[in-house]
C-alpha cells in the first residue's frame, strides 16, 4: 500500500514536472483543446436545438375539425371531451362561426382580398365552427396520429378534417442536412485535437530530454518515464474539455435572448439546448481518450527509452 502510494506520488510529481517543463505549450494546448471541444460541443448543441425546435414547431401544426352546421353546444362539449381523451392531444380550441369569420376578415394574406369580397356578397356566415387540435411532439406526423385524423372524419358532428402544413419540417430538414456536416467536422476536430496533444507532449519530451536521460541512468523503468507523459496528454485534453463544457454551459445560459431576433418573423423561439449531461460526459471522456492516444503516439515516436 505504502509503495503504491509512493509510486503514485512519484508519478504525480513527474507529471507536474512535465507540465512545468513546458508550461507555455501546455497552457496553449489546453486552450486549443478547449476551443476544439467547444466547437464540437456547439455542433452537438446546435443539433439538439434543431431537434427541439422541430418538436416545438411540430406542435404548432394544427388539425382542424370543421363541425357540422348548427351542431348544438352540448354535442360540441361532448366531442371536445372525447377528443381530450385521445393520446397526444395537447390542446383543443373551439372557434365559433363568428370567430372564424372575424379571423378570416382580419387575415391579410395574399389572395384573401378577393375571397373577402366574394364573402361580402353572400348572405349570412358560410364559415363553419371548428375545433382546432394541437398535438404533442409531432403527433400529426406519427402513424398513430395519422390514423386518428382519418378516424376523426367519421365521427358524428364532424363535417371535415384538415391538417395544416407541417411547421416542424424546415427544422427537421436542416437537422438532417446538418448530420453529415457535423460528422465530418467532428472527425476533423478530433484529428486536430490529436495533433495538438502529440506536438505538446513532443515539446515536453524535448524540454525534458536531459532529465529523461538522467532518469534512465539511475534506473527508471520505461513505464516510469512514459506514464507521466501519457497522463500529461490525457490531463491536457481533460482540462481543455472541462473548460469547453463550462464555456458551452455559459453560452447556453447567456445567449438565447440574443438569438431571438435572428429567427424568422412568426416562428416560435427555439430553446437553445444545454449540452445533455451524457453528451458532456461523452465529450470529456472522448477528449481524454484522444489525449491518451496523442500521448502514446508522441511517446512512441519521439521518446527513446
Amino acid at each position: 500500500m505504502g509503495r503504491t502510494a509512493s509510486r503514485t506520488s512519484s508519478y504525480l510529481s513527474e507529471i507536474v514536472a512535465n507540465l512545468r517543463a513546458a508550461s507555455g505549450s501546455s497552457l496553449a494546448a489546453v486552450l486549443t483543446i478547449a476551443a476544439v471541444v467547444a466547437i464540437f460541443g456547439a455542433l452537438v448543441m446546435l443539433r439538439a436545438t434543431l431537434d427541439e425546435t422541430a418538436r416545438v414547431w411540430e406542435r404548432l401544426t394544427p388539425v382542424v375539425l370543421f363541425l357540422e352546421e348548427n351542431l348544438p353546444l352540448p354535442e360540441v362539449r361532448a366531442l371536445r371531451t372525447r377528443l381530450r381523451r385521445q393520446p397526444g392531444v395537447l390542446e383543443i380550441e373551439f372557434i365559433s362561426k363568428e370567430e372564424a369569420l372575424q379571423e378570416f376578415q382580419d387575415a391579410s394574406l395574399p389572395g384573401r382580398a378577393a375571397a373577402r369580397e366574394a364573402l361580402a356578397w353572400l348572405e349570412g356566415n358560410p364559415l363553419p365552427a371548428s375545433l382546432v387540435l394541437r398535438y404533442d411532439q409531432g403527433a400529426p406526423n406519427a402513424p398513430a396520429a395519422r390514423d386518428l385524423v382519418a378516424e376523426l372524419a367519421t365521427w358524428p358532428g364532424i363535417e371535415e378534417v384538415a391538417t395544416g402544413a407541417d411547421a416542424g419540417a424546415p427544422a427537421r430538414r436542416l437537422r438532417y442536412a446538418f448530420g453529415p456536416l457535423a460528422r465530418t467536422m467532428g472527425g476533423l476536430l478530433a484529428l486536430g485535437l490529436l495533433v495538438v496533444v502529440v506536438n505538446t507532449v513532443r515539446l515536453t519530451i524535448a524540454a525534458r530530454g536531459e532529465e529523461v536521460a538522467i532518469m534512465r541512468l539511475v534506473g527508471a523503468s520505461p513505464m516510469f518515464i512514459r506514464l507521466p507523459l501519457l497522463c500529461e496528454g490525457m490531463l491536457q485534453a481533460l482540462a481543455g474539455a472541462l473548460l469547453a463544457i463550462v464555456f458551452l454551459a455559459g453560452l447556453a445560459a447567456a445567449w438565447p435572448a440574443q438569438l431571438l431576433p435572428l429567427l424568422p418573423a412568426g416562428a416560435a423561439p427555439p430553446h437553445l439546448q444545454v449540452l445533455p449531461l451524457w453528451h458532456a460526459v461523452g465529450l470529456v471522456a472522448a477528449a481524454a481518450a484522444l489525449g491518451v492516444v496523442g500521448g502514446f503516439v508522441a511517446v512512441r515516436c519521439y521518446l527513446k527509452v
Binding site: 505504502g2 506520488s9 512519484s10 541512468l217 539511475v218
Partner: peptide
C-alpha cells in the same frame, strides 16, 4: 554511476537530485 560532468538536474534541488534514484524504485517517501 558517477560522471565527470556530474549530470545533476539543474532545476531540481540537491534533495530531489539524490532522491531521484529512490523515487524511480517507488520507495516510500
Amino acid at each position: 554511476m558517477i560522471f565527470q560532468d556530474f549530470k545533476l538536474l539543474p532545476r531540481r534541488t540537491l534533495f530531489d537530485n539524490v532522491a531521484l534514484g529512490l523515487r524511480v524504485l517507488g520507495q516510500p517517501r
